[in-house]
């Protein structure tokens, strides 16, 4: 796999390059800001791009913006947004804005190369990847207590994996279940939580995440 890195910190880019190189992932090029990244990607599109959410010039949400641009221009390319913020609002915004082939990972994940590579592979395959910590936190809050109580422990596991962006096959692999069994659990969860049936896996991630966050009533 050939990837590109975009982060304004030289130190962090060096660490990340070292990390992915250890598992044989080639870093085609590095950029320290979105415009440099877009120029380099245009010249030589890699399989996936890892971007920091905060980059020059404003250090706010450049990573999200460039992810939208990249997924729009290169639908095949996977984009993994790294963030130090455990803010689900950003994850939801990313999914809403990009559709598929995007992931939102906490930067803490860089000490676990297998999780990083797993996420990279998923976004390259056009799937979603949401950091397990974000999903775990949403589930752990035990809001919507009554509805959550209707789920069995196994159904809750399935819910968490759906929120992370795994396919039925992926969930089965992670939980040691057959694809058929997973399908049944998914159907049960959707029914109990009164979630509308989702068209594809990415929409499913969005629906589940939104449901998890939905105690917050917006006007």
């Amino acid at each position: 796999m050939r990837i590109a890195l975009a982060d304004d910190s030289n130190l962090f880019r060096r660490g990340l390059r070292l990390l992915v190189a250890a598992v044989g992932v080639e870093v085609a090029f590095e950029a320290r800001d979105p415009s440099a990244l877009l120029t380099l990607v245009e010249a030589d599109p890699p399989d996936a791009v890892i971007v920091d959410i905060r980059m020059p010039p404003t250090f706010t949400d450049e990573g999200l913006v460039v992810a939208e641009t990249l997924t729009a221009r290169y639908p095949e390319m996977g984009v993994l947004v790294l963030s130090t913020y455990n803010e689900t609002a950003y994850a939801v915004r990313l999914l809403e804005g990009c559709g598929q082939g995007v992931g939102y990972l906490l930067k803490d994940r860089v000490d676990d190369v297998s999780a990083l590579v797993d996420a990279l592979e998923r976004v390259c395959a056009g799937r979603s990847a949401i950091d397990p910590d974000i999903v775990a936190r949403l589930i752990a809050q035990h809001r919507r207590v009554d509805e959550m109580a209707e789920l069995t422990a196994r159904e809750r596991d399935v819910l968490a994996h759906m929120a992370q962006g795994r396919s039925n096959a992926g969930i089965g692999l992670a939980l040691g279940l057959s694809a058929r069994t997973v399908e049944a659990y998914v159907a049960s969860v959707f029914q109990k939580l009164r979630l509308p049936a989702a068209g594809d896996d990415n929409r499913r991630v969005l629906a589940v995440l939104t449901w998890l966050r939905a105690t917050v009533q917006k006007i």
Partner: peptide
Amino acid sequence: RDLHDGVQQSLLAASASLGAARV
């Protein structure tokens, strides 16, 4: 921003290097 862009990036770079060592 100083905390985030300075200290935090250094800590994370160390984490990444450690991740590589772990492999």
